[in-house]
Amino acid sequence: MTAVNPEVQLNHTPGHVKHDGHNMTGFVIFLCSESVIFLAFFAGYAVLKLTAPQWLPDGVDGLEVRMPLINSVVLVSSSFVAYGAEVCLHARKLWRFRAVWLLTMAMGSYFIYGQYVEWSELSFSLSSGVFGGLFYLLTGFHGLHVITGVLLMGLMLFRSFKPGNYDKGEMGVASVSLFWHFVDVIWILLFLLIYVWQ
């Protein structure tokens, strides 16, 4: 293989590979993986609910649904608002994007506040049997995702003030928006599992 023909180099045309644009692929792969941890928690919840000798702790009849339902409506509709923000960004209306994006953040923050109020009014704790542990674990783990989503949206909002930053593409807005839809879908499943299936 050491015999080299010097003419070869002249006919050689260099090949290229695209260097950027992997972020969305990587993020989708990450979200697929992240969804499995929720699936595992949901499966664990279902198994323990079906087999536990005592499900609800003493003195607890069930969960109040009205407040969480309002919360859910706010969170789920915020997904559509986030989509609206993306549309504004595509139309290059930066100020409108910022306003609608901020509204999404506000709705997410309201959800966290509502969750906090609900937690503080409950009569059971993390150590109140299997149900107590699972309730706080699942809602808490989801809540962490909501907080992460709001923080990421804040980062995107901050970035939008750098002049010309969104001229060459959305720089992560699509990923954060996807994350937000993910958090919402997980909440719908969680709501069905914890509040509807009592």
């Binding site: 993986s33 941890i37 699936l39 664990g44 299997v130 699972l134 674990l137």
Partner: peptide, 24 residues
């Protein structure tokens, strides 16, 4: 990607059982 999340979930639950008084 598919297998590690459930292990991590199980580990978190085990940690809560060990240290924070839950009983999963």
């Amino acid at each position: 990607l598919i297998g590690l999340p459930p292990l991590t979930g199980g580990a978190v639950m085990l940690l809560f059982d060990l240290s924070f008084g839950t009983s999963f």
